[in-house]
Design a binder for these strands. Structure first.
Length: 312
DNA sequence: TAGGCGTGGCC
DNA sequence: TGGCCAAGCCT
């Protein structure tokens, strides 16, 4: 570690001290009322919401979240269910492997943690589908712990505020983690609130396309705004193609199976895509992922057997 | 570590 | 219109 970078972190830390109060006060004033922020949501509600919100907008999560919590109010309720039912209830949220992983996480919680969402960051991280972000988010939002929470919103806010650039790098860097830790409030409850507040600021004000700097509580401190809001430089931001990809085929195949409780003959699945090689590859991929269960006689259904070990 | 993995709304 | 974007994870 060079002296220069140590100094940089210290400078960031000093700069951040002036930001904690205005950002957290802005959050008090402007935070959206979301069901997983209600006290009665509990840690399980927080965890379910975090899985569903991975790469998926709040507006589309809301109805599915309500149905999910009503049907499976505790981890053990979901764990006792067929994994295919989790995939079905996932509906059109996208990335259905998340449904399978949430089911696996519920099973692990039931088996390893007595049915209660664990409080330790390492225990959370060991659950299927829980990465660095989700473990920190659950520990922070559900249990009020002090963790750097680096999601796409926070990365963008910090990049603008402290680095003077419009967008963060494609992949999260060690420098970003260091920065997030350096600017984290010392006091536990303040840090947990800061995590939620910086995320909300990124979601509502410091947005990717049209940041509303007039509404920003720390606009006068923002390095990017002070620099004249220079446009993004460097490598183009990673974007995803979809039309014509295996993902689109997988989506169509799974949509058929979600809507049918009885096993579906392969001929019915063949109707969703014209190109046989890609169609077969997509179906094989779904089977390999445990999202589809092949039965004897060329029929398919959502998985009944436990597809994955809950160990990790 | 780059790339696979859904879906839909927005401008 | 179509590229961009949305509270990532996993290999």
């Amino acid at each position: 570690m060079t002296a220069t970078s140590e100094c940089h972190a210290t400078d960031d830390h000093r700069a951040a001290l002036r930001l904690h109060a205005p950002v957290n006060e802005w959050f008090t004033e402007h935070a959206r009322e979301l069901p997983w922020r209600r006290p009665e949501a509990g840690a399980w509600g927080v965890m379910v919401s975090e899985f569903m919100l991975q790469q998926t907008p709040v507006s589309r999560v809301l109805p599915v979240y309500e149905q999910w919590l009503a049907r499976w109010p505790r981890p053990a309720d979901l764990a006792a269910e067929e994994p295919g039912e989790a995939v079905r209830a996932w509906g059109r949220l996208g990335y259905p492997r998340r449904a399978l992983r949430l089911h696996g996480a519920a099973a692990a919680i039931a088996e390893r943690h007595g049915g209660d969402v664990p409080t330790g960051h390492a225990q959370l991280l060991a659950l299927p589908g829980v990465g660095e972000y989700t473990a920190s988010a659950v520990a922070s939002f559900a249990y009020g712990q002090r963790h750097p929470v680096l999601d796409t919103n926070v990365r963008r806010v910090f990049t603008r505020l402290f680095r003077g650039r419009e967008f963060p790098p494609n992949a999260t860097t060690a420098a970003e983690r260091k920065l997030a830790r350096a600017v984290l409030p010392e006091e536990e409850a303040t840090a947990a609130r800061w995590a939620a507040a910086t995320m909300e600021l990124g979601a509502l004000v410091c947005t990717a396309r049209k940041p509303d700097c007039r509404a920003c509580p720390v606009a006068t401190e923002c390095a990017w705004k002070i620099a004249g809001s220079p446009p993004h430089e460097g490598p183009p931001r990673r974007t995803q193609t979809y039309a014509g990809t295996d993902r689109q085929v997988r989506g169509r195949l799974l949509a058929v199976l979600r809507e049918t409780s009885a096993p579906v003959p392969k001929e019915r699945l063949d109707e969703v895509w014209h190109e046989p090689v890609q169609r077969a590859r997509a179906l094989d991929g779904l089977v390999a992922d445990g999202l589809v269960e092949p039965l004897a006689g060329g029929v398919y259904r959502l998985p009944r057997s436990r597809p994955h070990s809950t160990a990790r």
